[in-house]
Amino acid sequence: MRIRPGRSAVVPQPPFSPLVARLPETVPFVGPEALARRSGIPLRARIGANESGFGPSPKVVAAVAAAAPQSWAYPDPENHDLRAALAAHLGIGMDEVVAGEGIDGLLGLAVRLFIAPGDAVITSLGAYPTFNYHVAGFGGVLHGVPYAGAHEDLSALADRARETGARMVYLANPDNPMGSHWPAEAVEAFITALPETCLLILDEAYGETAPAGTLPPIDTARPNLLRFRTFSKAYGLAGLRIGYAFGNSRLVGGFERIRNHFGLNRLGQVAALAALADHDHLGWAVGAIARARGRIADIARENGLAPLPSATNFVTIDCGGDGDYASLVLAELAQRGVFIRKPMAPGLDRHIRISAAPDSELDILAETLPQALRAAYGAG
C-alpha cells in the first residue's frame, strides 16, 4: 500500500478484549534489578523483597545440582511426588492440595476460578498488591477496608463482605506489609463470620516464622476456605517459584480445570521435596530470621525509630513522620545501594519495611540508615 504525502496510514491491529483494554500496563512490584538499572547505583544490600538471604538448605542445592542434567525432560505435570509429600506434611489427602508457581500464580488461578466480571472482592487497604492485580485482571470489583492500627480489621472485613455480597475475601496472617498477626482463634471466628458462599483466601506465606498458635488447625471440611503457603520465605527458594494451596477437595479440584500443568518446573519440584524433608535447616533458618529481626529492631531504635512487633521475616518500622518523609528515607537508602520497600496506603505509608538478612547486609543498613535519615530530614 502506498501512502500519500501528508497522510498517515491507519494499520489494523488485533484488539485487546474490552476488559484488558481498560487495564494499565502494571508490574505490582518494582524489583531491585529494575531500580539498579534505572539509577545506575550498584546494589549493596537486598533487604526489601522479604526473600531469605540465609539461602536454601545445602541438601536442596545438592539435589538440584544432581537433577540439573535431567532438565531436558518435561516436569511431571501432576506434581505427584511433591503433592504426596505435602499431603503427608499437612495430614490431608492428595486431592486436597495443589502446587503451583508460587502463591502469586495460585492467587491468579483462584481469582479466575471464582470471580466473574463485576463480582465484589474484599481486601485490606494496603494489603498484598499482587492479589489486587489478579482481581483487576479478571474484572472483579475490589473493596478496600482500612487497617485497624497495624492489623487487618477482621470485623470490618467480615461486615464489608456481608454488605457487598462478596464472592471472595483476602486475608494474610501473618500480615504483609505490617508484620502483625492474629491468633488462630480470631482467624477461625473470622472464617465463621463470613457468608458460606464467600471464599476466604488465607495467605499464610509467613506461617513458618509465626509464633505458635497463629495458624488454625487444618480442617479441609470447610467449604469456603483456601489456604496458601510457599517455599519462598523460610525455605529460601523464592527464585524457583514454588507455592501450594490446600483445602476442600472440591475447591482444589477446580485448579485442574485451568492450571498450567507444566508450570512448576522439574528443578523446582526437586528443590521443594528436598526442602520439605530437611527439618533441621528449616529450624536453623527460622532462628536466623528471628535473630535478624531483633537486630533490625535494635538498629531502628538506635536511630530514634519505632519497630513494630513482627511475626514474619521482615520488620516494619515507623519513621515518625508522614508518608512523604518515609518515602524520602526509602529514596535516600536507595541512593546508597540499599533496597527496601514501604507500605503505600494512607495510615500505613509512614512506615518502611526491612527484610531479615545476614549480618553482612545488616551491617550496611546500620551504616547507611543514619545517613539516609539525616538527608531525608534535611530535604523534608
Rank of each mutant, 00 (worst) to 15 (best):
S232L: 07
S232Q: 13
K233M: 06
K233S: 03
K233G: 02
A234G: 12
G239A: 13
L240N: 06
L240C: 05
L240H: 11
R241K: 15
R241W: 13
I242K: 00
G243Y: 00
Y244K: 00
A245I: 01
N248Q: 10
N248P: 09
S249R: 15
S249I: 10
L251D: 05
L251H: 06
L251I: 07
L251C: 10
L251N: 11
L251P: 09
V252W: 00
V252M: 03
G254R: 14
F255E: 03
R257I: 08
R257A: 15
R257V: 11
I258P: 02
I258G: 01
I258N: 02
R259A: 04
N260F: 12
N260Q: 14
H261R: 15
H261M: 13
F262W: 14
G263S: 09
G263C: 09
L264D: 01
L264Y: 05
R266L: 15
R266Y: 15
L267H: 08
L267K: 09
G268Q: 04
Q269V: 04
V270A: 09
V270N: 04
A271Y: 07
A271N: 08
A272Q: 04
L273N: 10
A274V: 08
A274T: 08
A274R: 07
L276D: 02
L276W: 03
A277D: 12
D278W: 07
H279K: 15
H279L: 12
H279W: 08
D280C: 08
D280V: 14
G283C: 11
G283F: 02
W284P: 05
W284M: 10
A285H: 11
A285Y: 01
V286M: 06
A288P: 05
A290T: 13
A290C: 02
A290N: 11
A292F: 02
A292M: 08
R293G: 08
R293A: 13
R293S: 10
G294P: 10
G294T: 07
R295W: 11
R295D: 10
R295F: 07
